[in-house]
Design a protein around this nucleic acid. Structure first.
Lengths: 111, 111
DNA sequence: ACACTACATTCGTATCTACGCATATAACAA
DNA sequence: TTGTTATATGCGTAGATACGAATGTAGTGT
């Protein structure tokens, strides 16, 4: 495969990864895991300002992670597909294993 | 669940996600997919400077994504476990679907 | 000891990102 | 129209990130 094309694809790939590489966006994704929510719902549930929630949702929208639907004055957000959630869960399992490993190492070192 | 603890866990979770949220680190991870490689091997294969490769590997090491083994003067890098690779692949599939939806570059991904 | 190779780390800087604030847009009601 | 609610977007800035260049460190051989 052409190195130039490979680099550009990895750039796009990284953009999708960056979509989930922020603590607040992970919180948002978790809230949307099994329910459709408005911007205001997310603000209240996560105690984050409206403008900040909208900014994070704009990133998730741009990367194709979420889709939107209007309901009167509100805009409801949903996760598009399950692959992103699956990836998020895999990385969380990875983190859990890593924390367990380091916890075991730490206790061994401290006796 | 306590919101404060949840936020801290998502901070750690995001740190793992950030590890794969960079095009060069994705290239490195792909090179290590099925072979153990030295820093110099990666520099040559990816045409990236030695210091930059070492910097990216330091991040992957710190996040627990790769492990190291000394062989003389060289240091060989390996992926720790398969969960990160699985997550990377899922996000790549997600990207491929999204690009196909938008009608661009979809065929490049499956080749 | 010295030199050489392979890798890691520090530093300065350019670029990027997240955030608050203010403002703009959209839908609806009176 | 005006007003109100809900969401989006532009702007400025503090902090994070990526990079090259230089330097530090570890292992090997002479």
């Amino acid at each position: 495969m052409d190195g130039q094309v490979a680099a550009e694809l990895h750039e796009l790939h990284a953009r999708v990864c960056k979509a989930i590489a922020d603590p607040k966006r992970l919180l948002i994704i978790n809230e949307l895991r099994d329910q459709e929510l408005s911007v205001g719902d997310l603000c209240e549930a996560l105690d984050i300002s409206q403008s900040n929630v909208s900014q994070h949702l704009a990133i998730l929208r741009e990367r194709g992670v979420v889709s939107t639907r209007r309901d009167g004055t509100r805009v409801l957000y949903t996760l598009r597909g399950t692959k992103v959630i699956q990836a998020v869960d895999l990385l969380r399992e990875f983190l859990a294993e890593d924390l367990a490993d380091r916890g075991r190492l730490g206790s061994e070192m401290t006796g």
